[in-house]
Each structure stands twice: as C-alpha cells, then as structure tokens.
C-alpha cells in the first residue's frame, strides 16, 4: 500500500513536470488567478498599502492583465521577487508574467529566453551629490566614492561610463535603497547613483532635498517593462496589447470615468475597435470583445495610473518627461488597433 502511494506520487510529479510549458492563457483561466511577479516593496511601483493590498505603477499593469483575461482586477496573486529570484521564478513557471521595473536588454531578451511585452517606463541612470561639493557635471567625479544599489544594470553602466571618460572611482555596493541613504547622508560615499526615478524618490524623502543636486548626465537607457517567457506567443500578445491598450486609451482620451459611455459606441473607429464595439480584436487573442474596457476600468488609462502612483501629485513626484505620449513630445507610442 505504502509503496503504491510512493510510486503514484512519483508519477504525478513526473506528469506535473511535463505540463508547465503548455498554454499560459489556459493555465491562468483554469486557475482563476494571475500569478504576477513584482518588486518586494518599492513605493510607487509595487508595495502593499496600509490595508495590505498591493498597489503601484507595476501592480496596475498586473491588474489590467487580470481584468482583461479573467474579468476581475483583484484576481492576481502577487509574488514578491528579488533581483536574484525574478528570472528563475518566471522561467520556471512560478509566475505568469513579471512586472518588476526590469530593464529590457539584449541578453535578457535573447539569452535568458524572455519576451518583453513593451515599455511602461522609460528611465535612465543618474547621479545625486551634495550641493556643497560644487560639482556640476559627472565628468568631474574623478576619484569619488560612489554608492551603487546592486542587483541592477547600474554597476555595468557606471563601469562603462567611467571607463569611457577615463576617470577613476571607488564603488560601494549596497543591497537596498534604505541602506544606501544613511551612507550617502553621513558622507561615507560622495555620490549616489541609481535610476533617475529612484533618485528623485530618494531625494524627496530627505530632510533638506534642496541640499542635494541631481547631475544633468543620464548615463544609460533603462526601458522598464513587463516580460513573459519565450515560446508562448499568444500569452505574450495578450500582455503586450493590454499594455498598448492602456497607452492608446490615454491617447484617445478614454479614461476609467468615461470608458463605459464610450463603450456604447463612438464616432471614432479607433476607439470603437479598441473597446470592442467594432471588429473582433478580442476574439483574435482568445478573449472576449470587452477585454480592453475591463483593463482600462481596472485602474484607468496609462496617464491615470502614472498620476495615481508616481506622478507629480504623489510623494514620488516624477514628471512625465520621456513617458509622455508621442503627441506631447514623449516616447509612448502604441501601434494602431486594427
């Protein structure tokens, strides 16, 4: 009896191992929840609020996908991942998608066999330095001690930049933003470097933000976006076009407030196709016609999500900058819905 239970368990384990590569969409529907990998607490991007509910810029992307696929923006199982565990978690099928301010790079896309669904935030690495040092350019940083947050592309950008400019520096690798702040403020490092959005958020939390300057040089391109596994293109399409729907909705003026009215039909064929009153775009993806309506209703369009979580009215206080619509001088440009 015992032996047969053991053999049975072995068989089940063997079968389960074989199933993970099947269609992610079917798995998500069967499970009833979307497993979404996020950062383990980065205010503004992904962090649990006072009620214990996850919220943030990246979290909203997960909720929009869940709303589009399952009809319920709360049907998301948030899996906090660290810089080290995120790729293994995605590759092993523990999570269905990863929305964790992850930079889209060649080797991650090609070598690690992932598929980036798009860019939801255009960032770049910058430097912050105390105003009293009187430095106005990163090129004057020869010999400086630089605090770096590890587990990012930051170390490589920094090494490249200093090598290209033929100046030396002393790196101090720090695991988290919280540990780096006291070191920087006590003067254990001269400069703090991370993504410009993170620098702005960090400086906002200082007692005297005006005593610190962010240098004008942005030394890297950091397109952050959600990603999925290679090999399941249908699922990749769903995540990609949900993100595009949020961006297009802002462009066409569709908001969480007016999406229900607009979904009854408008004069604009682009909006009609997006919201499913014309054409059969949802069906092509294996979803129903209202998928985009639900995705937009979940947290609003891209602009609304930005303003709620990291915009100028929030403590993070980021301006749109590169993340404005292409019609307003930014880089956000959704391909057409047709």
């Amino acid at each position: 009896m015992k032996k047969s239970v053991f053999l049975g368990a072995l068989t089940v384990a063997g079968l389960a191992a074989g199933a993970s590569a099947a269609a992610t969409l079917d798995d998500v529907k069967a499970r009833g929840t979307l497993n979404c990998g996020v950062a383990p607490g980065l205010v503004g991007f992904a962090a649990p609020n006072a009620e214990g509910e996850w919220e943030g810029f990246d979290v909203s992307v997960c909720r929009a996908v869940a709303a589009a696929v399952l009809g319920d923006p709360t049907a998301v199982e948030f899996v906090p991942t660290t810089g080290k565990t995120r790729f293994t978690a995605l590759a092993s099928g523990e999570i269905d998608m990863l929305a964790r301010n992850t930079t889209w790079t060649f080797s991650r896309d090609v070598d690690l066999k992932f598929e980036f669904a798009g860019v939801n935030y255009y960032d770049g690495q910058g430097f912050m330095i105390p105003r009293e040092l009187g430095i106005s350019s990163a090129k004057e940083l020869d010999g400086a001690t630089v605090c770096i947050q590890t587990g990012t592309t930051t170390e490589l950008n920094l090494a490249d930049y200093f090598r290209a400019n033929n100046i030396s520096y002393e790196p101090v690798p720090i695991e988290t933003n919280a540990e780096a702040q006291p070191l920087y403020l006590e003067g254990a490092c001269d400069v703090y470097t991370t993504d410009a959005s993170g620098l702005a958020a960090t400086r906002a939390s200082f007692e005297n933000p005006g005593d610190h300057v962010i240098l004008p040089e942005i030394i890297s391109k950091e397109p952050l976006g959600p990603l999925v596994r290679h090999g399941d293109n249908d699922w990749g399409d769903i995540v990609r076009w949900t993100l595009n729907a949020l961006i297009a909705a802002e462009e066409y003026g569709v908001t969480s407030a007016n999406v229900d009215d607009l979904a009854e039909g408008t004069d604009n064929p682009e909006v009609n196709r997006l919201l499913g009153t014309e054409g059969n775009l949802g069906e092509m993806m294996g979803l129903d016609a209202d998928w985009a309506v639900r995705a937009i209703k979940a947290n609003g369009n891209y602009g609304e999500i930005f303003e709620q979580n990291i915009g100028e009215s929030t403590p993070i206080g980021l301006s749109r900058g590169l993340n404005a619509q292409w019609t307003e001088g930014g880089l956000l440009y959704s391909p057409p819905f047709r």
Binding site: K84, T85, S107, L112, T150, G151, T152, T153, E155, P173
Partner: peptide, 16 residues
C-alpha cells in the same frame, strides 16, 4: 557571495 552570487548572477541571470 557578492561577486559570483550577487552581481554576476544578476547580470547573467544564470542563477542555477
């Protein structure tokens, strides 16, 4: 742990 298990792991994604 900081070089091989930290930055190298992160940059290459070769966790295992």
């Amino acid at each position: 742990t900081a070089t091989l298990g930290g930055i190298t792991l992160n940059q290459t994604g070769r966790a295992i």
